[in-house]
């Protein structure tokens, strides 16, 4: 499998708001020499607590924030290099974003057709074939499981799950190779989450996309991702190359995260002991549920499974 996205030694720091001297230049290091590879057709999960810098990394990877050091290569070309408008457009449309907060991720004054139309416009500008805008919009809506009649609706006339589907359609419209999902499902309820994840994995299979999945929720990572990076204080603390080996975590932080997902309900002193006894059975039960969900074709079946993986049942 070829590498579609490679980040090398990414360093980002922000100027501190509170400086000790009047014209101080103290900076807060947010990302420390992050390197990662994304291979074709895989889903890379990035998990970490709030403020660990994972969303900043997302911005760097999507070309919104130029890092102080390091380079980002998208299919072999550096995305922060100066280049002509045309080749820049050709490069940028290969990556699309889906955000967590679906309410602010679309312009409230745009209809669904305009929302998708904006992406189609970019695709056309980048040299893609898109002569039948309306036809293509219908196709995209169909692809994400929305009826064609939604084309004239405004965002406030859609539910959260529907809006997130529109966001996915918008991301697909530029025919990307990579979709970066920044907490894309975290603000949805459990059953909708599963439906959206099912949609994402179907789309991934049919279009051969690569995903970068940024989240703080381990359950969704196990559902979708092939590899996981654990993120803490701007560093990758652990990397799991096989999702089935999630039980063999080394670092305390990753274990702690895993435990909080499992909801063992142990106090901190007991946590140490529990760390030693990472209950293999629970991990495998998680993986089992996961496999079952992957096998389930209908969203309803998936939804039922999702509830069974809730801490109260598992823990």
């Amino acid at each position: 499998m070829s590498v579609v996205l490679r980040a090398k030694d990414i360093r980002v720091s922000f100027r501190k708001e509170q400086q000790s001297s009047l014209f101080g230049q103290e900076r807060q290091q947010v990302l420390h020499d992050i390197s990662l590879d994304l291979r074709e057709g895989e889903c890379l999960g990035i998990i970490g607590e709030s403020g660990s810098g994972k969303s900043t990394l997302g911005r760097v990877l999507s070309g919104l924030l130029k890092p102080e050091g390091g380079r980002v290569y998208l299919e072999g070309s550096d995305i922060y290099e100066k280049r002509s408008a045309k080749s820049k457009a050709a490069l940028q449309h290969r990556m699309a974003l889906v955000f967590q907060d679906y309410t602010s991720s679309v312009n409230p004054r745009f209809r669904v057709e305009n929302i998708i139309g904006e992406s189609l416009r970019i695709y056309r500008k980048a040299g893609g074939d898109c002569s039948h805008v309306r036809q293509r919009t219908y196709e995209l809506l169909d692809q994400v499981g929305l009826p064609a009649s939604f084309i004239t609706r405004y965002p406030h006339e859609l539910s959260g799950g529907q809006l997130q589907r529109v966001c996915i359609a918008r991301a697909l419209a530029v025919c990307p190779r990579i979709i970066l999902l920044d907490e894309a499902i975290s603000s949805l309820d459990a059953s909708t989450q599963v439906q959206i994840m099912d949609l994402l994995s179907t789309v991934q299979k049919s279009l051969g996309l690569s995903y970068i999945f940024i989240t703080h929720d381990l359950t969704s990572i196990t559902y979708l991702c092939n590899r996981v990076l654990f993120f803490q204080h701007g560093r990758i603390v652990e990397q799991v190359d096989q999702i089935s080996q999630l039980s063999s975590l080394q670092t305390a932080y990753a274990k702690h995260l895993l435990h909080s997902i499992m909801g063992l309900g142990v106090s901190d002193s007991e946590q140490e002991q529990a760390d030693l006894l990472v209950s293999e059975s629970e991990i495998s039960s998680l993986a089992l549920v996961n496999d079952a969900r992957k096998g389930a074709d209908s969203p309803q079946a998936g939804a039922v499974m999702a509830f069974s993986s809730k801490p109260s049942v598992v823990g």
Partner: peptide, 13 residues
């Protein structure tokens, strides 16, 4: 800083 502007920028509008 709204997400729809970020999306626009990221795809190269």
């Amino acid at each position: 800083e709204m997400n729809f502007v970020l999306f626009s920028r990221s795809i190269g509008s």
